[in-house]
Amino acid sequence: MRTRTQEKIIETLLKLAASITILTTIGIIGVLLYETIAFFKEVSIVDFLTDTEWTPLFAQKHFGILPLVSGTVLTTLIAIAVALPIGLTIAVYLNMYAPKAFRKTFKPMLEVLAAVPTVVYGFFALTVVTPFLQSIYPDLSGFNSLSAGIVMGIMIIPFVSSLSEDALYAIPKTLKEASFGMGATRFQTSFKVMVPAASSGIIVSVILAISRAIGETMIVAIAAGQQPRLTFDPTVPIETITAYIVQVSMGDVPHGSLEYRTIFAAGITLFIFTFLLNTVSFWIKKKYQEKYD
């Protein structure tokens, strides 16, 4: 009977450990809501959503989130424009063309790209990529979304390539063979049969990469600037939601002040974006698993 009790205690402890993840979610949502509600007691929600200026740290205060959102969307778009074609090409190449040994060596090597700390990429964007781009296009500002976006794109290549390759790998071999059997080339088989068949897995990988890019902080904080502005010009300094939170955290903003609360209002905006993306990808993944199981 002693073991019975012991077993019960252990199970309870393990369950508690698992439950910490629930507390984390409750904590995140609670904290963001709590401070954001306090924020909206002082700032109108209409201003927050429609004002085109974000200047909470200046004397003339404006609290329009749009400039931060546009900065975030702009860098994310640039990153995806880099990562999607390259990542997908790599996935198709590794799956359909590359010799087994090549795939085995290069897939993990590419994943090293995702293991490099992001502050290192920030340094790289600022000190290597921006000067390089300036040598081609001299009007490029020292801080800009182009350079930050490109480097971010490179960072998320493995997200697209590895997960898409996994999705291609999961396609039954018979499908591939059927296409080859009818005289199709590898290229035709890849893009007419394999990619469509793996499309849900590929979409999930792209969504995860987008979600990662939206939440990425250090690259943009270092290389994209700290000037919130509503623009889609990739050559000028901008500011993303994440970079703003860092900017405020680096300074000395008193706890409980309106400025302090702005980072939570910005944070909840970011959270909603990534939460929606994660939910969509989770939903697609679920449907897709049912199809193949």
Binding site: T21, G27, L32
Partner: peptide, 19 residues
């Protein structure tokens, strides 16, 4: 719990900072 953990994995690190 499983759905929750999948979601947490996608929350940006800076949000954990706010928490």
């Amino acid at each position: 719990l499983e759905i929750n953990i999948a979601n947490l994995a996608g929350v940006p690190s800076i949000i954990y900072g706010l928490l």
